[in-house]
Simulated assay, not measured.
Amino acid sequence: MSAGLAADRVAWSAGGALVLDGVSLTPLAGTVTGVLGPNGSGKSTLLRLLAGVLAPASGVVTLDGDPLAAVPRRTAARRIALVHQQADTQAELTVADVVRLGRIPHRRAWTPASAADEAAVRDALERSGLTSRAHRLWHTLSGGERQRAQIARALAQEPRELLLDEPTNHLDIQHQLELLDLISGLELTSVVALHDLNLAATYCDQVLVLRQGRVVAAGEPGAVLTEELIADVYGVRAHITRPGPGERPHIRFLGTLTGSA
């Protein structure tokens, strides 16, 4: 029986249009896997299939070798945490209140928080660098702080698999780097949808590249992110600098390809 979360030839359609077509992904335990591709390539849909939010039309998502659909929802929620692109609420919630939502899979309905719940919340706040903001109201936070709070909420679930849908969107460079430093240091099995190829090259142990719902390439960033692939998938000319063996590549974009779609 294979351990962890995996997708095997999954497909999904919306409105008669094929969004994902035969995509397989087996993240390595304790690593960061980047899911890359242009807008509309199926990145968000793949994460929702892995989280069990959507059910594949064909193929299967498994957790420790068992079909995810057959795993009790509470069990899956304790194992898998999904962080969406953006989250908002009109309720007057504090940061600590938001993080406490991550304990729902561990509690029976209408039961008060236990000492273990509160310890998990404190730990998640500390790991996310939000202890000093625990009593701040959610709507007063910056975009970067909200993303960190959502990751803290996910960490309070005490998952083994963490799925993040473009977590660096709308963040400035400092907050992008801080967020990915946090994610890469968690030692969880993380799958992250990203737009920025240099961030993917810097922080991901493996990448999966999608185009129009199909896998174009998969493997280590240094092997996958080539000038040819970037031109083919993104329609962009690029120059890649490879500092040395074992070092991460850096991508410099030179412009769009003439006549590219």
Rank of each mutant, 00 (worst) to 15 (best):
D21V: 04
G22V: 06
G22Y: 07
G22I: 07
V23Q: 02
S24H: 13
S24Q: 14
S24A: 12
L25P: 01
T26K: 10
T26P: 05
P27V: 06
P27R: 04
L28R: 14
L28C: 14
A29Y: 12
A29I: 13
A29E: 13
A29G: 12
G30H: 06
T31H: 10
T31D: 11
V32M: 07
V32A: 05
T33D: 09
T33Q: 10
T33G: 11
T33E: 11
T33C: 13
G34V: 04
G34C: 10
V35Q: 01
V35L: 06
V35F: 05
L36N: 06
G37V: 04
G37D: 03
G37I: 03
P38L: 05
N39I: 10
G40S: 13
G40K: 10
G40R: 10
S41M: 08
G42Q: 00
G42H: 00
K43G: 00
K43L: 04
K43H: 04
S44W: 09
S44A: 08
S44T: 09
S44Y: 11
S44E: 05
S44L: 10
T45Q: 01
T45C: 04
T45E: 02
T45A: 05
L46A: 05
L46S: 02
L47N: 00
L47M: 07
R48S: 09
L49H: 02
L49D: 00
L49K: 02
A51T: 08
A51V: 09
G52V: 01
G52Q: 04
G52W: 00
G52I: 02
V53Q: 13
V53C: 10
V53W: 07
L54F: 03
A55M: 06
P56N: 01
P56E: 01
P56T: 00
A57Y: 08
A57Q: 10
S58R: 14
G59A: 01
G59K: 02
V60C: 12
V61D: 01
T62N: 01
L63Y: 01
D64G: 00
D64I: 02
G65H: 08
G65L: 08
G65K: 07
D66F: 15
D66Y: 14
D66I: 13
L68S: 03
A69W: 08
A69L: 12
A70E: 15
A70L: 14
A70I: 15
V71L: 07
P72T: 04
P72V: 09
R73M: 14
R74H: 15
T75H: 13
T75M: 12
T75F: 12
T75E: 12
A77W: 04
A77Y: 09
A77R: 06
R78M: 02
R78N: 02
R78P: 00
R79F: 12
R79T: 11
I80S: 11
A81W: 05
L82S: 05
V83N: 04
H84S: 15
H84F: 14
H84L: 14
H84T: 15
Q85K: 12
Q86L: 13
Q86W: 13
Q86V: 14
Q86S: 14
D88R: 15
D88A: 15
D88N: 14
D88V: 15
D88I: 11
T89H: 13
T89K: 11
T89S: 15
T89C: 09
T89I: 12
T89R: 12
A91N: 11
E92R: 12
T94E: 07
V95G: 08
V95K: 06
V95P: 06
V95D: 06
A96K: 04
A96P: 03
D97R: 03
D97F: 04
D97M: 02
D97Q: 03
